[in-house]
C-alpha cells in the first residue's frame, strides 16, 4: 500500500484518538482540582492524593487487588502457554474442537454469565469464597487471553529450529525450554501483563465470586461511583491509569528491542552464510 499521510488519514487518526483520549485526560486533569465540584476549576492541588493514603479501606482493597492479579496472572500465563502449545503444536486429537471452543468462547462471553457460573460452582463444591475464589476465576478467564497472545507468536516462527534441536538429540522438554521459550518470551511477557491488567480491572467476575472477606479495588470504586463523581475517585483512577501506562510502555519498548535484536541476528546470519 502506498503509505503516506493524506489529509483524510490524518483527520481520521486525530479525531479517533481525540475520542479515545479526551475523556481520560479530563479525568486526570480534574484529579488535581482543588474544588470538590467536578465542573469548576478551583486551582491545582494534590490534596485528593494525600487523602487516599489515609484511606485504609481503599489501601487494603488495592493490596488485595494486586495480590489477586499477580497470582492469577502467573497461573493464567502457565496455563495459557500450555493451551497455546496444544492449539498450535499438537495437531489433531480427539476433542480438539471442544478445546478450542472452550479457549475462544470466554473471550466474548458476557462477564455476568462467567461470574454467575463460577460462583455456583464454588457454592456447589462448598469452596470457601474469598481471595482464592477470585484468583481461580481470574486465572480461568484471563488464561484464554494469554493463550491467544502466545498462540499468535507460536504459529509464526520458524518450526525448523525446533526440529533441528530435536534432531541434535534434545528432548521435547529441553527443546521447549531452550529453544521455543526464549523465542516466544516477549509474547509470554505480554500475555502475563495482559492477564495482570485484566484481573486488576475486573469488577463483575470478582463481585460474583468473592466472599465477605475480600474486597477488590474495582468493587470499592464501583460502590463509590454509584454515589456520584468525586475527586478522590479521579485520583485513584489516575494512579491506576499511570500504573498501566508505564507497564505498557515498558512492555512495548522491550518488544521493540527484542525485534531489533532478532533482526540484527538474522542479518548477521545472512552475512555469515554468504
Amino acid at each position: 500500500m502506498n503509505n503516506r499521510f493524506s489529509w483524510f488519514n490524518v483527520t481520521a487518526i486525530v479525531l479517533g484518538f481525540a475520542f479515545l483520549y479526551i475523556p481520560i485526560l479530563i479525568l486526570v486533569i480534574y484529579s488535581f482540582n482543588d474544588s470538590k465540584l467536578v465542573t469548576v476549576w478551583g486551582g491545582f492541588s494534590t490534596k485528593w492524593y494525600a487523602g487516599l493514603i489515609e484511606n485504609e479501606q481503599l489501601m487494603d482493597a488495592a493490596w488485595t487487588t494486586l495480590r489477586v492479579a499477580f497470582i492469577s496472572a502467573t497461573m493464567a500465563t502457565v496455563l495459557g502457554t500450555m493451551a497455546a502449545l496444544v492449539l498450535v503444536r499438537m495437531g489433531r486429537f480427539p476433542g480438539r474442537t471442544l478445546f478450542s471452543g472452550m479457549i475462544f468462547a470466554p473471550l466474548v462471553m458476557p462477564e455476568v454469565i462467567t461470574g454467575l457460573s463460577l460462583l455456583l460452582l464454588f457454592v456447589a463444591i462448598n469452596f470457601d469464597r474469598g481471595f482464592w475464589t477470585i484468583v481461580l476465576a481470574h486465572a480461568t478467564f484471563t488464561m484464554c487471553f494469554a493463550a491467544v497472545v502466545v498462540q499468535a507468536r507460536l504459529s509464526d516462527f520458524d518450526h525448523r529450529v525446533e526440529e533441528a534441536a530435536m534432531d541434535l538429540g534434545a528432548s521435547p522438554v529441553a527443546t521447549f525450554f531452550q529453544v521455543t521459550l526464549p523465542i516466544i518470551a516477549p509474547s509470554v511477557i505480554s500475555a502475563w501483563l495482559l492477564a495482570f491488567t485484566l484481573s486488576l480491572d475486573d469488577l463483575v467476575i470478582a463481585s460474583f465470586t468473592t466472599g465477605p472477606s475480600a474486597t477488590t479495588l474495582p468493587m470499592k470504586i464501583y460502590s463509590q461511583v454509584r454515589l456520584g463523581v468525586t475527586p478522590e475517585i479521579n485520583a485513584i483512577s489516575t494512579i491506576m491509569i499511570a500504573f498501566v501506562t508505564v507497564g505498557v510502555l515498558i512492555a512495548s519498548y522491550m518488544t521493540k528491542m527484542q525485534t531489533a535484536r532478532v533482526e540484527r541476528d538474522r542479518r548477521a546470519a545472512d552475512a555469515a552464510a554468504n
Binding site: P23, D201, P218, I233, S237
Partner: peptide, 9 residues
C-alpha cells in the same frame, strides 16, 4: 488496558 470501569466513569 486501562480499567473499563474508570473509562465508563
Amino acid at each position: 488496558w486501562t480499567s473499563f470501569l474508570i473509562r465508563v466513569y
